[in-house]
């Protein structure tokens, strides 16, 4: 494997030795030659430096890698088996957690969306029914009835015309008009939902002011009829009105939701 070695005797190989015994003719004694050769000294230094470097690196490297590399085959198989089963366990755990996360996410967004939907629906119904105060653009419509001649049907017509013209919710004096509002009584002593009205009757209506005003003033409409009876109607549009009279929510006595 090395230069000047002879196969015999065992234990006598000496790489780095000059030719043992009789050196080639003309070669100076090796011991003296070493001193005189700076190139050889440099080479030796470099080689031994490399050796030391590689040695240290390999030792470090072996520290890290040799733990498994030095293990026996059966041990390696056992370790591999353990790692495999552990991986499988962790994978199944991961799948479970993923499924749970998906479920939670799905149900969370579902209930959230349903809640939001229900809330909006309740708001719309509340405004429609008069259980919620409302605000927005609209108009005030004041019916003066100095002679006490405005009839029940006139007020009902006012309400119906307003609804037909796009009124979304309204109140008269401090009574909210809902879907079951009743106007009763005699001219001059009108009663709305059991609350007596005093002239002037002041409607606060939320809706499109222009459309409602046009509908009110239509020839032969409710305003003209009231004026014919001796009353007067004053309409004032407004960009910001508040309808804050509330109606109790009727609990249906006979009708129940059809759940099918």
């Amino acid at each position: 494997m090395t230069g000047p070695e002879r196969p015999d005797p065992p234990g006598e190989e000496n790489p780095g030795a000059g030719p043992a015994g009789p050196g080639p003719a003309g070669e100076p004694p090796p011991a003296r030659r070493r001193r005189r050769d700076p190139l050889a000294a440099t080479l030796i230094g470099v080689l031994t430096l490399l050796l030391g470097f590689a040695l240290a690196v390999q030792v470090r490297n072996a520290d890290e890698a040799q733990v498994l590399a030095g293990a026996r085959e059966e041990d390696l198989v056992r370790i591999l088996d353990e790692l495999d089963s552990r991986e499988e366990r962790l994978r199944s755990q991961l799948a479970e957690q993923r499924a749970a996360l998906r479920e939670l996410n799905g149900s969370g967004s579902q209930t959230g969306a349903a809640l939001e939907e229900a809330r909006q629906r309740a708001e719309r119904l509340g405004i429609l029914n008069g259980t919620l105060a409302a605000q927005g653009p609209g108009m005030t419509l004041t019916v003066r009835d100095p002679a006490g001649t405005v009839q029940v049907s006139d007020l009902i017509d006012v309400v119906q015309e307003l609804r037909g013209a796009g009124a979304e919710t309204m109140q008269v004096d401090d009574v909210r008009i809902g879907h079951s509002t009743a106007v009763t009584g005699a001219p001059g002593e009108l009663v709305v939902d059991g609350t007596p009205l005093r002239s002037p009757y002041e409607f606060v209506v939320l809706g499109d002011p222009q459309g409602m005003e046009t509908a009110m003033n239509i020839p032969g409409g409710v305003v003209q009829r009231i004026e014919r009876r001796g009353g007067s109607v004053e309409i004032t549009g407004s960009p910001e009105l508040v309808v804050d009279a509330l109606r109790p929510l009727d609990r249906p006595q006979y009708a129940a939701p059809d759940t099918e």
Partner: peptide
């Protein structure tokens, strides 16, 4: 009997 050349 060290020889630098042989060693290298």
């Amino acid at each position: 009997i060290f020889d630098a050349k042989v060693f290298v």
